[in-house]
């Protein structure tokens, strides 16, 4: 393996680690599904019937993706593509609500009622995470030669 390939591999691992850590830091959604369902409802983007299934499924999908990014190298690229899709969906949902005007937080990392309302900084943060996912995918491709 050349020096460049080692650097690309390190960038790939680091980006995967940061994305996984970000997804895992939303663990409160697993502990309080009722609060997370309310957060999903407050986006006003889904029909009633989809709110709870999405609130039940999404946190486990995030954990599944994070687990694969950290511990299952064989499926890391697939997990990165799912992470990318999730981040695009989350960012779109936040942007739509910011344009509409909302007083509520995004519920991304905590369900406290004292959490600050969502803001464009949330979109910027997710944009940075999307770039990290692309970096991880690029690093994987380049490190493979």
């Amino acid at each position: 393996m050349t020096r460049d390939q080692k650097i690309y591999r390190f960038a790939h691992w680091l980006a995967c680690f940061i994305v996984a850590a970000t997804f895992l830091s939303g663990y409160h959604k697993l502990l309080r599904p009722d609060d997370f369902a309310l957060a999903v409802y407050r986006f006003h983007l889904l029909p009633d019937v989809w709110v709870n299934p999405v609130a039940i499924y999404l946190p486990w999908l995030e954990v599944g993706v994070a687990f694969c990014l950290l511990f299952v190298p064989r499926v890391r690229v697939a997990a990165l593509w799912i992470a990318l899709a999730l981040l695009v969906l989350f960012t779109g949902g936040i942007a739509v609500n910011l344009i509409r005007g909302t007083a509520f937080g995004c519920g991304c990392f905590g369900a406290s009622p004292a959490a600050k309302p969502m803001e464009w900084m949330n979109v910027a943060r997710n944009g940075a995470l999307v770039l990290l996912v692309f970096l991880a995918l690029y690093g994987k491709r380049k490190s493979a030669g």
Binding site: P33, W60, G64, A79
Partner: peptide
């Protein structure tokens, strides 16, 4: 990954002390 996460989510919501109904 999507499928396994879905199965885990179904099982977890069945045994979760704060489980929520699938439709509300």
């Amino acid at each position: 990954i999507l499928l396994v996460s879905g199965v885990v989510a179904v099982v977890a919501n069945t045994v979760h002390p704060r489980r929520i109904p699938w439709v509300q």
